[in-house]
Design a protein around this nucleic acid. Structure first.
Lengths: 196, 196
DNA sequence: TGCAAAGCGGAACGGTGTTCCGTATTGTTT
DNA sequence: AAACAATACGGAACACCGTTCCGCTTTGCA
């Protein structure tokens, strides 16, 4: 049993049915509110939408990061699993890296405020940062290593830095039509290429 | 008289001497506190450090953005003026652009929280964003155009996007030793280069 | 049905930005 | 010097937010 299984088990295994129901209601409400108002929406709004009290949301999700993680776990997992698949299916490792980065960027820019939240220095958000790193850093490292080995990109860049850079470039990408995060990330990845 | 002169004049021309003294005290206090606690430090702290009441800070600087701008105006102006100078002194436009970007990045990463503040969606921070754009966008555009004309970089990238990208890459650059914003920006600028 | 355990709700607290107005300071006029 | 109007000041008060805490309710079991 890994960390991921243990966390999801904590929900499925909840003893009382009202607790399970409320937790699901909170997840649904959070998902809706995150789309409408971003991941920094007031806790009270989420509790109200779910029809529960404020205490309940804190009992199920002691930190906002845990709620965000619970809401987006499936998508993050899908992104993590896409890495090896792309590597196997793409003509070159660099192509796989590029496609995977696209996936990651798409995920970030469509989740209002998520990229910013991950860089927030408020207490509790290190957890969010850590979760993304746990799940995606190994994948990114694998892709980066493959592309380095194939000689397509410069060696020496830590996957961590690349992911942070990409995350940063996605901040505020919604809400500003003049800014195209995808393009900026593409430029960054282009800068990674070995000058043939 | 341009906008910049008018704004500075609003300080020098303040009629009552206590008002002038307090405004200067606030600027000094803000500069100190910004260094110690970042540009998002509580308004009360700044007022306390300056030895004035809360009302006074709001009278002189109705929005936080105006206070930040007042504190950093000189440095932003210096950065703006460095653009043409670099263009004249550098061997190639691309070298000038690279040096200017370095200047900009240095400024951002040494001002705790400034890059993040510029991307904050709270009301009042559009002013900050707008000020930086007013002062620096023309300079960046000039450098970018020169480098495009000389054939060193791909055409078609708006200076606005480049500046936003750079600003984003600088977010949280302090407080994370594993992340090197300068390197990421260098990568971005490298991605801009015309493939020979 | 009774009862202990588990869970719930929301009042209450601390911290923050912001407004507002009675009071104090300043500069001018007499 | 004294009176006065204009200007500026201070901080109480309000609104909003995250978070904690505890009396009350619901649940599941005996």
């Amino acid at each position: 049993m890994n960390d991921s299984d243990r966390r999801t088990a904590s929900m499925a295994g909840s003893k009382r049915k009202d607790a399970r129901r409320n937790q699901q209601a909170l997840l649904d409400a959070a998902a809706t509110i995150f789309v409408a108002s971003g991941v920094e929406a007031p806790v009270r709004d989420i509790a109200a939408k779910a029809g529960v009290g404020i205490g309940t949301i804190y009992r199920h999700f002691p930190t906002r990061a845990e709620l965000i993680i619970a809401v987006y776990r499936h998508q993050v997992d899908a992104c993590a699993e896409a890495g090896p698949a792309l590597l196997a299916a793409s003509p070159t490792p660099h192509a796989a890296l590029a496609q995977w980065v696209d996936l990651f960027v798409d995920f970030l820019v469509t989740k209002h405020g998520l990229a910013a939240a991950m860089r927030s220095d408020s207490a509790g958000f290190e957890t969010l940062h850590a979760y993304f790193l746990d799940r995606l850093l190994p994948v990114c490292t694998q892709l980066l290593d493959a592309a380095t080995t194939s000689g397509e990109i410069h060696p020496g860049l830590e996957a961590y830095q690349l992911m942070r850079g990409i995350g940063n470039l996605c901040i505020g990408a919604d809400a500003d039509p003049r800014y195209d995060a995808r393009r900026m990330v593409a430029l960054l990845v282009a800068g990674l290429r070995q000058p043939h």
